[in-house]
């Protein structure tokens, strides 16, 4: 990172780095499905990837990172609520 006056120049924009992470996690998720891996641990592992990706979208693409107050947490709370219920359902089914 290099600062010139008021502009900050990045070797790779943070949003582009986030994009690469999102694509990578998606391909890993797909590979898990292709390999036929299953079971509670695998399901929760894949779900955690999805929730993390949602968090990245909320923070970096929606611009919620750096916002103070309730709005900072809306996407995180949304991810955690269904995420917890889905986890509960999968645990109870195993």
């Amino acid at each position: 990172m290099n600062q010139t006056g008021t502009k900050t120049i990045y070797a790779v924009r943070p949003c582009t780095f986030v994009y690469i992470v999102l694509m990578t996690l998606t391909v890993i998720t797909w590979l898990v499905g292709k390999a036929g891996l299953h079971g509670l641990e695998i399901s929760l592992f894949v779900l955690s990837f999805a929730l993390f990706k949602g968090l990245l979208i909320g923070d970096y693409y929606m611009g919620l990172r750096g916002i103070k107050g309730l709005w900072r947490w809306v996407i995180i709370i949304w991810l955690l609520l269904p995420g917890s219920l889905i986890t509960w359902a999968f645990v109870s089914a195993s």
Partner: peptide, 18 residues
Amino acid sequence: HMVDIVWLVLFPLVYIMH
């Protein structure tokens, strides 16, 4: 982005997790 986030959860839930 909201539409995207929803799909990011839907994709593993419906297609991958079993």
